[in-house]
Simulated assay, not measured.
Amino acid sequence: MLVVHDVTKIFGQNIAVDHASFVVDRPAMVGIIGRSGAGKSTFLRMMNRLTDATSGEIRVEGRNILALNGTEKRAWQSQCAMIFQQFNLVPRMDVVSNVLHGTLNRRSTLASMFNLFPQADIHKAIDILERLGIAEQAPKRAEALSGGQQQRVAIARALMQDPKIILADEPIASLDPMNAQIVMDTLRRIHEEDGRMVIANLHTLDTARRYCDRVIGMRAGRIVFDGTPEQLTTGVARDIYGADESFSEASTSTSLETLETAAYREAMLTT
């Protein structure tokens, strides 16, 4: 389904993504990990065509999406939905209208300006909210919801596009552990039930191991690891993050159990 070949992105003197190559031959859930500045977000933005690559190819079902322009580029962006760390909702707009914005790429400018949505789309939006467990929030303003609920609204908006691929850029970085788990459970369920490919940038190893079929590690723009969650050992993680022997997975964890254990150990050391 997805072939990434020698993809590079250069900003001035900085190489953000350095000759990245990998192949995903089925609708897997893929996690990309690495420290800040490793090139994870830049890569997803190239996939969604929010930024252009300097060189290389990204082929989806044989078509190089980096070569698309105009109408074809916009059509691709509707097939490749993007979920952001900061949700990117319209705060004062109600939840269901935010979800309906997932249809903007295929609607006329006039209809978009006046928020004119077909009844069928409204019913679909509510059905998606029901599926994600937040249908009761539909009439509320997005700003009235918790962070976890807002991220599920963003996921619902992505599903309104009926995409082939869902890209999630640090989708749980601003959430507490409980909401992080709910959001990741939601993405995993969408992958399994719909057969959609999900590619998520993640900042925690336990999340990548628990939810992903495959993990890609990036360091300074280069892919330095590509394997299964079981192959993601602490030693491999140190190499990905450029860390020494003092590296602790607990410091990057979103797992409630790991955090509780770490807190208990810290309390015991200070008593």
Rank of each mutant, 00 (worst) to 15 (best):
L2P: 11
H5A: 13
I10K: 15
G12N: 08
Q13L: 07
N14H: 09
I15R: 13
H19R: 11
S21K: 05
V23C: 07
V24P: 06
V30N: 12
G31I: 00
I33G: 06
G34M: 12
S36N: 14
A38N: 13
T42N: 12
L44Y: 09
R49I: 00
L50G: 03
T51R: 03
T51I: 01
G56A: 07
R59I: 00
R59P: 09
V60T: 07
E61G: 12
N64K: 06
G70E: 12
T71L: 09
K73A: 15
A75E: 04
W76M: 08
Q79H: 14
C80H: 13
A81Y: 09
M82K: 10
I83D: 04
F84M: 05
Q85P: 08
Q86F: 06
P91R: 14
R92Q: 12
M93H: 10
L100N: 11
H101S: 13
T103D: 06
L104W: 04
L104I: 15
N105G: 15
S112F: 05
M113E: 09
F114Q: 09
F114D: 09
N115L: 14
F117Y: 13
F117R: 13
A120D: 13
D121P: 10
D121N: 11
I122T: 10
H123M: 14
A125C: 09
I126Y: 14
D127E: 15
I128E: 05
I134T: 10
A135E: 10
A135F: 01
E136C: 05
Q137G: 03
A138R: 09
K140T: 02
A144S: 10
Q149P: 05
Q150K: 15
Q151G: 13
R157L: 07
K164Y: 07
L167K: 14
D169L: 04
E170Q: 14
P171D: 09
P177A: 08
A180L: 02
D185S: 08
T186V: 01
L187S: 12
L187F: 00
I190N: 06
E193Q: 15
G195M: 11
R196A: 05
I199G: 06
N201C: 07
N201W: 01
R214L: 00
I216P: 03
A220G: 09
G221I: 03
R222G: 10
F225N: 07
E230C: 11
E230Q: 15
E230Y: 11
T233K: 12
T233I: 02
T233Y: 03
T234G: 12
G235M: 04
V236A: 10
D239G: 11
S248H: 13
S253T: 02
T254M: 11
L256G: 01
A262M: 02
A267Y: 08
